[in-house]
C-alpha cells in the first residue's frame, strides 16, 4: 500500500492532533506547519483515501453551534496507519544518515 506525499502530511497531522483531529483542525495545523493552505476539497479527498486504505478510522462527534448544528467527524490513526508512518520514517532516516553534512536533530 502506497502513501502519497500529501497523504503522509495529513496522516502526520492526524497523529499529532490526537483526539482533536477533524477537518478544520487538520487544515489549520497543515497551514501552520507547511505554510501552504490546502483547499477543503483536497484535504477531504486525501482523508477519504486514507480511510479507504484503512490508515485512519473515524468517529462521529457532537454537534456544535458554529457548525450550524452539524456533527464533526473525528479522524484517528489506526495501528496500521501508525506502522505505515513508522516505516516511512525509518526509510527516510536510513537515507538521511548517509548524507554527509545533513544534521538529524530529534527532540527528546
Amino acid at each position: 500500500m502506497k502513501l502519497g506525499g500529501f497523504e503522509e502530511l495529513v496522516l502526520l497531522a492526524i497523529g499529532s492532533l490526537g483526539d482533536d483531529a477533524y477537518g478544520v483542525t487538520i487544515k489549520e495545523i497543515l497551514k501552520e506547519k507547511t505554510g501552504k493552505n490546502p483547499s477543503v476539497g483536497a484535504l477531504h479527498s486525501a482523508l477519504y483515501r486514507l480511510e479507504e486504505k484503512e490508515f485512519v478510522k473515524t468517529r462521529e462527534g457532537g454537534a456544535t453551534a458554529e457548525r450550524g448544528g452539524r456533527r464533526k467527524k473525528y479522524y484517528q490513526l489506526t495501528a496500521y496507519g501508525l506502522k505505515m508512518l513508522q516505516e516511512t520514517n525509518e526509510l527516510r532516516m536510513s537515507f538521511a544518515q548517509n548524507i554527509p553534512g545533513l544534521s538529524i536533530k530529534t527532540q527528546e
Binding site: 477537518g23 487544515k27 477543503v40 477531504h44 456544535t64 457548525r67 452539524r70 456533527r71 464533526k72
Partner: peptide
C-alpha cells in the same frame, strides 16, 4: 454533513 460542517466552521473562523 461533514463537508458543510467543516466549511461552516471555517467560514466562521
Amino acid at each position: 454533513e461533514e463537508v458543510l460542517g467543516d466549511l461552516d466552521e471555517k467560514f466562521d473562523l
